[in-house]
Each structure stands twice: as C-alpha cells, then as structure tokens.
Simulated scan of single mutants.
Amino acid sequence: MYAAKNLSDESYRRKIARQLNNGESLHSLRRQLHYAREGKITRRQPDHQNEQAWCLTVVTNSAISWHTEYMGLAVGELRAAGREVDAELLAHISPAHSSAVNYYGSITVDYDRELVQLDEKGHRPLRAVATDETAVGL
C-alpha cells in the first residue's frame, strides 16, 4: 500500500522527503554535537552511559530552542519591514541547524558587553546579512 501511494502521489512523496530531510537535519546536528568522542558512548556503566546520552539530548534541545527562538524573531522582523513570509513555507523549515554552534575550543564571553546588547525581552540583536538588493544599493 505504501509503495503504491509513494509511486502514484507526488505530493505524498514530497511530504515524506521533507520529513526525512528534517530527521536527517536532527541526526546531523546530534552527530556534530557529539563529535568529540567520535560519536561513541565511552562510559562503561549503564548509569554513566545514560548520563552521557542525556547530556547530548540537553545540548541538542538547547541548540534547537535557540534556533527556533531566533528564527521566529527574524521572521517577525521581516514581516515588520513589510516582507511577505509565507506560513506554508515556514512549516517546512527545521530549526535543527548547527550554524551558531562553536564546536572547537572554549569561548570567552564579555558578559557586561553582551548584557548591554540585550533588548527588553532578553534577546540578542539579529545579524544583518547583505542580500543582492542591499549589495547593489537597490
């Protein structure tokens, strides 16, 4: 039944492909976050293995929550500027990205400088990215 529907219904195939891509995005993020031990659970005791897995889950959920929040802020800013952002399109975007994650070394944070940048809701300012329109001065 599944194979017949998959072969005959293009919209169904696209829906399944989007779901698979979102799942792969999540797996890719988890692999990248867990790279330090080459993706291996290194603890011997089951309790310690469970702790290591839960730590990976907490870090993964933190990255996804951060991306979800700031993607929402970016969409809100675009809409406030008069740009149309299709809600149907947003339904297909996965927040499981690793672009804002530093995997190497340690991070030194100037807390006072960072806290001054926060808005009244505690959000950092969005970074402006030059588009083709802004690059040519349109």
Rank of each mutant, 00 (worst) to 15 (best):
L33D: 00
I93Q: 00
R44A: 10
I107W: 13
Y12I: 08
Y111N: 15
R83H: 14
V109R: 10
T57I: 08
A87S: 02
V75C: 06
L90V: 02
L90R: 00
T131P: 02
N22D: 05
A3R: 13
Y103C: 02
H48L: 06
Q32W: 03
V58N: 11
E84S: 07
Q52C: 00
G82Y: 06
S98E: 12
Y2V: 11
N61H: 12
E120L: 15
Y70P: 01
E69W: 12
Q19I: 07
A81M: 13
P125D: 09
L33N: 00
V109C: 11
A135R: 15
A74E: 04
A4C: 09
R43L: 09
N50S: 10
A96R: 02
D110S: 07
E38M: 04
L126M: 11
Y2W: 10
T57K: 12
V59N: 10
R113W: 09
C55F: 05
N61P: 03
V101G: 04
T57P: 02
H67L: 05
N61Q: 10
V59Y: 14
V136K: 15
A17R: 13
Y35M: 13
Y70G: 03
G72E: 05
S62P: 10
V75Y: 02
H97C: 03
R37T: 02
G82A: 09
D47Y: 02
L7C: 06
H123M: 14
S106Y: 15
G122Y: 12
A128Y: 15
N102W: 06
A63M: 05
G137C: 08
L115M: 15
G82K: 07
G82V: 04
Y111T: 15
W66N: 14
S11A: 05
S65G: 11
I93F: 04
Y12E: 02
E114L: 15
S25N: 13
T131V: 04
G137S: 06
G76Q: 13
R18S: 05
T57M: 12
D112H: 07
Y111K: 15
A96I: 01
A36L: 04
S94D: 01
S65C: 12
E69L: 14
G76H: 12
R113T: 14
Y35S: 14
R13L: 05
R13F: 08
T134V: 04
K121E: 15
V75D: 03
T60G: 03
Q117I: 12
Q45C: 07
A17D: 03
Q52R: 00
R30C: 07
D47V: 14
T57G: 06
E120M: 14
S65Q: 13
Y104H: 12
Q32M: 06
P46L: 00
W54Q: 13
N22L: 06
I41V: 03
N21L: 06
V136I: 15
L78N: 08
H92D: 05
G39C: 01
V75Q: 04
L56I: 03
I107V: 15
C55Q: 14
G72Y: 01
G39A: 01
Y104R: 08
P125E: 08
R18L: 04
G39Q: 00
E69S: 11
M71A: 09
N21H: 06
V59H: 12
R44Q: 09
V58S: 05
L29T: 02
V58C: 08
E24P: 02
L29P: 00
S65T: 14
I41D: 04
A96M: 01
S28V: 11
R83P: 05
